[in-house]
Design a protein around this nucleic acid. Structure first.
Lengths: 126, 126, 126, 126
DNA sequence: GTGGTCTAGACCACG
DNA sequence: GTGGTCTAGACCACT
């Protein structure tokens, strides 16, 4: 269900947070779907339950999930909101990188090619 | 000469590396220009000399500078190469981010707007 | 009869306690009205009977209900007392919060506005 | 410097977060003031360093502090912003409580008295 | 020395 | 059984 890369420099709990966030954004996990329990996922991934707990706490604080003591953790309802949030982040990043690239001599044509934009005249998306 | 932001979460040595790299890329520092000595820069920025040394070592490892024993550190000649290296990095990042954004529903029009591309062609989206 | 919100962070038994307390305070449930049996309410709400039992025990401890062995639980007679008790709690909370707000620079006008008090008197603030 | 109440039901790390937040809001701790180190505070309060670390992480995430690896944690600059944030919280709480109190029969006069508002005709704040 | 992450194991409240 | 908190001790990167 989740892929953890131990060689990745990013902390494990962050990879778990990202993983579930992606699953929620892409609607693979629909609202009110129950996540695996802290202990179960810990065993499954051979990771300390504390680390899983930290990831779940973070997910709840970000509004991706909600949890009920004694019952479990569940995907939150606002899936589309997450999409918008992520898109806003992407916009900020892309704008910044494009600005730097342009300062280094990149042309519009290069940028369009990098982003694989269909630049036919009245072109839509096939 | 260099701007260090102590509140930045990035380590100081990395900020120094980035700073000199940018100066070299933008040709503010031309090839064979001598960098300030470790001790001098340490005093100037009120930073531990160890941190400066680490940055200089990193800069040399990346090929941005070269050093001569007993003389000091100097900007390398391959300024344009640095540009290309950085552009390659930017291309990889932008392509990846654009791909994700498109999967989340971003349209070509949105991407073009984010990158502030001059729309020379009148192509819209149906 | 009762509304349970599974996404609420508050434990279910507390929501039940609050629910019956509100019904008693607002006189929807008059004194000596019998509460549903533990088993019946458990089935009705699809909740573990242990949880209901805990709520009922808590209600009795707080004096909202009384119970007779073999008969069931009933609303206590002191409905107005509950009102006064709750009002006393509210007074304590409001006084404390108002004090803190004032220390942070809130003016009387702001406080009145927050509480939506009808300004019968034309007193403003210089 | 900080007061921890072990009998308080609130978790220790939250008490620490609140404590430093209050000190920052009330300008007892001015921007860029260094907080005690994780280990030092842990010894001082006889609390596990992990718990302190959790509090410090939370403080940083809330924007109350910023931290530099290898140097320490420091109070953030936006002291007035914190005030506004807290006031918004207080407004929400007071409005809600006042609403409930009114439903239970509290009069404007009672509310004004609870909040110790000077309700003289043109009264300001002495 | 500093903050940040992780493991191991315990206890609690809740269902 | 569940999530949430805490302790104890370790390792890492950074200054």
């Amino acid at each position: 269900m989740l892929h953890i890369d131990y060689r990745d420099s990013r902390p494990i709990y962050e990879q778990i947070v990202d993983g579930f966030t992606r699953l929620a954004i892409s609607a693979v996990l629909t609202p009110d779907t129950q996540l695996p329990s802290v202990r179960q996922l810990a065993i499954e991934l051979s990771i300390n339950p504390n680390t899983i707990q930290r990831a779940y706490t973070e997910l709840e604080k970000r509004g991706v999930t909600y949890s009920i003591k004694g019952r479990g953790s569940f995907i939150s309802a606002d899936c589309d909101t997450l999409r918008q949030t992520r898109l806003a982040e992407l916009q900020a990043d892309i704008t910044s990188l494009a600005h730097e690239a342009r300062q280094l001599g990149a042309t519009d044509t290069m940028l369009l090619h990098w982003m694989q934009v269909q630049h036919t005249k009245e072109g839509g998306q096939p």
